[in-house]
């Protein structure tokens, strides 16, 4: 079995209008090489489920998202994501489903467990129920009779995640302190594409970390992409930290349309190799 492919091949299997889940959290271990491949491929009208960071910013800026399902969009060290803000304030983002963080977890877990919904207390009393009028509550059938929010399963057509190591079979290994929800995204999806910093032989995985660090099991993975620096400019602990200076440049450019056009031209008009070269050139400039 060999699930290796490149980022463009992985994205070629997606189609416009799909529901796509994106792993990571905020500006942390986002599958940015795969997101950049989506930008190149011209996919449109996506429903995107994400604990949002610059993945959402880039896709929203390019007008690729029809419907966003999230609890927040942030760059972490820069609290507000400028492209997401602009898309919301201009009305360019057609539809938003805004959940509590724990509700999103319940929705993904329901999908992974093949359940129609899971109950939670989170959301009760808040405007999450007002702004999502399709949400329903359930009453406990037991004597407590407690009313809870029934979070519908967030079933995904495809999941995109980025991990530290993987083998060609699709086993994905997380060497950082936080797996985020990446394995859940994969289990909640009909297909899943996993990019990794380094592709290794299966036997090498146990040299990199304990068995429990193999987070994403191969049965839940469709394609494996070797993408060194594939989370850039978000963090990918322990391989690298967030590229804060690049993120600042991104956020500054995003605040101004002409600056953004120049940023796009410089960093996003070519393929992944061109991207890496442009990032290296910027770093060299800064160090000069």
């Amino acid at each position: 079995m060999d699930k290796r492919m490149n980022a463009d091949e992985a994205v070629s299997r997606l189609s416009s209008g799909m529901t796509v889940g994106i792993g990571g959290w905020g500006s942390r271990r986002k599958p940015m090489a795969l997101v950049r491949a989506i930008l190149r491929a011209g996919l449109r009208d996506l429903t995107v489920v994400s604990y949002g960071g610059p993945d959402i910013g880039l896709l929203a800026a390019a007008g690729r998202i029809q419907h966003l399902v999230t609890a927040f969009v942030t760059l972490d060290s820069i609290p507000l994501e400028p492209h997401f803000r602009a898309a919301r304030e201009s009305g360019a983002l057609e539809r938003l489903t805004e959940y509590d963080e724990g509700m999103l977890l319940q929705g993904l877990t329901a999908a992974a467990h093949r359940l129609p919904f899971l109950p939670t207390r989170a959301g009760l009393g808040s405007d999450v129920l007002r702004v999502n009028p399709e949400l329903r509550t359930v009453v406990s059938p037991y004597p407590d009779g407690e009313e809870l929010v029934a979070v519908p399963a967030l079933r995904l057509d495809a999941a995109l995640v980025h991990l530290n190591r993987a083998d060609r079979l699709g086993n994905g290994q997380c060497l950082g302190p936080d797996p985020y929800m990446d394995d859940l995204f994969c289990a909640a999806a009909d297909t899943a594409y996993l990019s990794c910093e380094r592709l290794v032989d299966t036997a090498e995985l146990q040299k990199e970390g304990p068995p429990g660090s193999v987070l994403v099991p191969r049965w839940s993975v469709t394609g494996v992409v070797e993408a060194p620096g594939g989370a850039h400019f978000t963090s990918c602990a322990p391989d690298y930290d967030r590229d804060e200076s690049f993120q600042r440049a991104y956020a500054q450019a995003a605040a101004d349309p002409s600056a953004w056009a120049a940023f796009e031209q410089r960093f996003l008009s070519g393929d992944e190799q061109d991207y890496r070269a442009a990032v290296a050139a910027l770093r060299a400039e800064a160090n000069r």
């Binding site: 949002g52 999230t70 927040f72 009305g91 805004e98 509590d100 989170a122 009760l124 808040s126 702004v131």
Partner: peptide
């Protein structure tokens, strides 16, 4: 989450994040 009308905010903030769950738990 947002300042103004949620459907077209005057100023988008972070999103509700974990606040609904935090405050009922």
């Amino acid at each position: 989450s947002a300042i103004g009308d949620w459907s077209r905010p005057a100023r988008q903030l972070l999103g509700v994040r974990g606040a609904p769950g935090n405050t009922v738990n």
